[in-house]
Design a protein around this nucleic acid. Structure first.
Lengths: 143, 143
DNA sequence: TATTGTTATACTCTATAACTATA
DNA sequence: TATAGTTATAGAGTATAACAATA
């Protein structure tokens, strides 16, 4: 069999599984999940985006993005505003959504700290820079 | 709001979303999913492990691990062998499972290559080493 | 008492396909 | 024709809680 130690996908998946578990734990007090917070973050970073655009950023399809927005709207965290194109919605965080997101990010930052504890400050910066580069490239490929 | 560019969890999640999408695409021809291949990999790396141990390695609980093993056993990829402790099962890959896994890893390695294309060889090695370090540390914390 | 596997049940997240309204 | 959103349906993956058998 091939060398698993050298498999990027395998190692990334194991790392993500653990990071996700920790994030889920941190968000439990808010009754939220990592997937929903990620959606809030994308909307915060792209205020006024459409549901289709949200789906692309999350690597999911329109129907799934819509269900996510439904849930977040019901929770009062996101609102569907009229868009230039009357077929579309412009997604924005509500005031409550922005406030809740900040609190959740505080909790998540602590989870990050624990996860990154074994790394030196330089190694952390390198890792973040590399991951960002890949994430950005991936985003371009998908959108 | 906090600086998303510096959020490790956020960037890792976006990266994983894209990696997962690519892996899913690569595995489509095999009728398999990333989660199941990861389970096969853990069993391959820890032949004879129990379902509980599999769950810990995957950061999921016993009941979920059992469902996963049920599916893999039905597919003829994994078998439950008797263990020293009669309460437990010793999980092993079948011959077909080992063969199928090798073929799937080939497909996944190509997906990895595309994903890592923007990085220099040095950056790739650094990234893999760092991710492995974190994944191993995380595994210790969970198990 | 604690642990392994198991069963039953439910929830989150995602997918596909088909529909509507508008471009 | 193509696109944004929607609806209906289905499946994968995970969780919790409670149970039996064994340590």
């Amino acid at each position: 069999m091939q060398d698993l130690e050298k498999s990027f996908g395998y190692q990334l998946r194991l790392l993500h599984l653990e990071a996700d578990r920790r994030a889920r734990q941190a968000l439990d007090a808010f009754g939220m999940t990592p997937a929903r917070v990620t959606a809030l973050l994308v909307i915060a970073a792209h205020t006024g985006c459409t549901q289709t655009a949200l789906g692309e950023a999350l690597s999911i399809n329109r129907a799934s993005a819509m269900k996510m927005v439904n849930a977040l709207e019901t929770l009062g965290l996101v609102s569907r505003e009229p868009a230039a194109d009357p077929r579309a919605h412009a997604l924005t965080l509500t005031a409550a959504g922005g406030k809740a997101l900040d609190a959740m990010l505080d909790a998540l930052r602590k989870a990050d700290e624990e996860m990154l504890a074994p790394l030196s400050p330089e190694a952390r910066q390198d890792l973040l820079a590399t991951i960002r580069l890949l994430a950005v490239q991936a985003g371009r490929g998908a959108g």
